[in-house]
Design a protein around this nucleic acid. Structure first.
Length: 387
DNA sequence: GCGGATCAC
DNA sequence: TATGGTGATCCGC
């Protein structure tokens, strides 16, 4: 490639520059800032689940996997350089006290579904992968304050509420208006009969709500609400990114990790400001090899990627330089469906098919019951309310 | 259409 | 002692 580069004449480069800039102008013309994409990412997911279920592991450096291969580590272990995809025996050398916990996929799957349910009532569309990365498209209309109010759990009652235990406690009101649509909602999360009783009197139980929170309706607030719901339901924390497209939202979700969120406001200027000094390696799709190739051309940041756009169009395939140009302009997908089909049952599929469907209601009903059945197989019980 | 390379997780 | 498994995409043949 370097030889190829050496053969490029300044004339060729000028022509390439014109062609690329024409294309860049078209892209700029089509820039869409009207969507809000949220990327939710669980913090050290497997390790967090293991720590939650075994308090002895708290405050200790742990990793999940085996002596041959680790899937992830907690933040304590990361201080020693212990990372995902690292062989366990090497991690042991870096951190002799490291505790390696074997994988429990069945457990992660259950928690994953729980997190998925936490997304549903705040969004119109979500997608949850088995590894718990999830993205969702908003916006929700303004809901009444009661619907955005939560009581904060106290004590240790947060973990592992048994599915189906609290069915009897569901009130008529909760079924229709509660943000919690699942059957196994802990009783202390029920909406207030009287919103003013913020500092609740004791009810001779430990798990009495003492404080309530109300989330706003901005994207930032909705995402805070989602993370709050996840933490209340699973005792695990999540980070999130909010941006006008999926590519940026994913990068953002990493920015204030763990247990934080970051938003790129929907303006061209905000996007460009964020992109400017961002190392290209942070972008999903740019791996070790591509990073190294571009580094050889003097490209580390997105701004440099843009500067070299003409050269890149001569050295790389069309798909590749188009991809690079999109990145350097801060452009990305503004919708979640990649193609028509996805294997896993998901709310996203529901959303896409509803959009196309002639008989929206009956299809929605059908797919919702499918989702419910799916979740029941995992031992979770849900109400799906068609509005 | 197939296999290799790259990438995400 | 010991460095994964799977699926997606792109590319060249």
């Amino acid at each position: 490639m370097m030889q190829q580069k050496a053969r490029i004449t300044s004339q060729q480069l000028r022509e390439a520059q014109l062609q690329v800039d024409r294309f860049a102008m078209e892209l700029e013309h089509c820039r869409d800032l009207s969507n809000t994409i949220v990327h939710v990412d669980m913090d050290a997911f497997y390790a967090a689940v293991e720590m939650r279920d075994n308090p002895e592991l708290k405050d200790k450096p742990i990793a999940v996997g085996s002596m041959s291969m680790l899937s992830t580590s907690n933040y304590h272990a990361r201080r020693f350089g212990v990372r995902a995809a690292m062989p366990g025996f090497i991690a042991k050398r870096l951190c002799p006290h490291l505790i390696i916990v074997p994988l429990n996929f069945d457990k992660y799957r259950v928690v994953s579904k729980q997190v998925g349910i936490c997304l549903a009532p705040t969004s119109i569309c979500s997608w949850v992968s088995c590894r718990i990365r999830s993205q969702l498209q908003m916006p929700r209309q303004d809901w009444p304050e009661e619907r955005r109010r939560y009581f904060i759990k106290t004590g240790n009652s947060a973990e592992n509420d048994e599915p189906g235990k609290e069915v009897n406690n569901l009130s008529e009101y909760e079924l229709s208006a509660s943000p919690l649509l699942f059957e196994d909602s802990p009783p202390d999360l029920q909406p207030p009969g009287n919103p003013s009783q913020v500092n609740c009197k004791e009810q001779n139980k430990l798990q009495i709500p003492q404080k309530s929170v109300v989330f706003g309706t901005s994207a930032e607030e909705v995402v805070k609400e989602i993370r709050f719901r996840i933490e209340q339901k699973t005792t695990l924390t999540a980070s999130a990114g909010i941006a006008p497209n999926t590519m940026l939202a994913k990068v953002c979700s990493d920015k204030n990790k763990p247990n934080g969120q970051y938003q790129i406001l929907p303006s061209r200027q905000a996007v460009m400001e964020f992109i400017k000094d961002l190392p290209i390696r942070k972008i999903s799709g740019i791996g070790k090899v591509t990073e190294k190739m571009l580094k050889a051309l003097g490209i580390i940041t997105c701004a440099e990627l843009y500067q070299q756009r003409a050269l890149l169009s001569l050295l790389f395939s069309e798909t590749s330089w188009h991809y690079f140009l999109h990145i350097s302009l801060g452009l990305g997908s503004t919708h979640l469906a990649r193609d028509g089909e996805r294997k896993s049952m998901s709310v996203e599929r529901t959303f896409n098919e509803i959009n196309k469907a002639e008989d929206q209601y009956s299809l929605c009903q059908e797919l919702c019951s499918e989702i419910a059945q799916d979740l029941q197989k995992e031992g979770l019980k849900v109400f799906l309310v068609l509005l």
